[in-house]
């Protein structure tokens, strides 16, 4: 099985690539649509600004790749900004349209709770993951609540469809989507490749799920 990492110039691709290699899967990093479509599953990484990332995806002609992935039910995992791009749009830097696979918008953490108390922005560090549901690829006993994953972000997904929410974390007054899934498309807001054993386990389950054909 071969995994393709989408290289559109906005990711810290290296850590993800290495994590997948350590799990024993073949991996390529590419910006070529045909080459990427010849793999079994794709990863959309990303750090940086939403608008710049969308622009880069358009310039490199990779938006059409992701549309094709969605239509053909090819598994795709968006990580961090890569997950946010899968939503309808963002308020970041004067907004921009996203890929629109998931309903909902990307908004900045307000930094202020309803009661007027402040919380820190960015949301940075280890937070507990709570499962809202367990899709087939995550139906293992080890997927218990309150395990830690590493978040580092200032923007998060809001107004999303409850049906697409797999897991979340509490931060300030917000419920922060941590894992989302719709069809073959998955998103993780935290960095599984930086979340120690549990993060690696989540990545492994996703890869195993791809292999078994159950990430749908």
């Amino acid at each position: 099985m071969k995994i393709g990492i989408i290289d559109y110039g906005m990711g810290n691709l290296f850590s993800v690539e290495q994590a997948i290699k350590r799990l024993g899967y073949e991996v390529i990093v590419s910006a070529d649509k045909e080459e990427l479509l010849a793999t079994d599953a794709l990863i959309l990484p990303g750090v940086g600004a939403f608008k710049d990332a969308m622009k880069r995806l358009q310039e490199t002609n990779l938006v059409s790749l992701i549309n094709e992935v969605e239509k053909s039910n090819i598994p795709l995992l968006g990580i961090c900004l890569g997950m946010q791009l899968l939503f309808q749009g963002s308020a970041e830097n004067g907004s921009g349209k996203g890929l629109g696979i998931f309903n909902g918008e990307i908004e900045r953490f307000a930094g202020i709770n309803d009661d007027g108390s402040a919380y820190r922005v960015p949301h940075m560090g280890w937070n507990e993951l709570q499962f809202a549901q367990r899709p087939e690829w995550l139906q293992e006993d080890e997927m218990t609540d309150n395990r830690f994953v590493y978040f580092v972000h200032s923007y998060f997904a809001t107004n999303m469809d409850r049906a697409d929410l797999v897991a979340f974390a509490h931060y300030g007054n917000e419920q922060v989507p941590g894992i989302v899934q719709k069809g073959s498309i998955t998103g993780m807001q935290f960095h599984p490749e930086k979340s120690s054993e549990f993060g690696v386990l989540l990545l492994k389950r996703w890869l195993d799920g791809v292999k078994k054909g159950v990430v749908l």
């Binding site: 750090v47 940086g48 600004a49 900004l81 960015p122 580092v152 972000h153 200032s154």
Partner: peptide, 8 residues
């Protein structure tokens, strides 16, 4: 910060 985001 503009290029990579404040979190970096």
């Amino acid at each position: 910060s503009d290029y990579f985001g404040a979190q970096c």
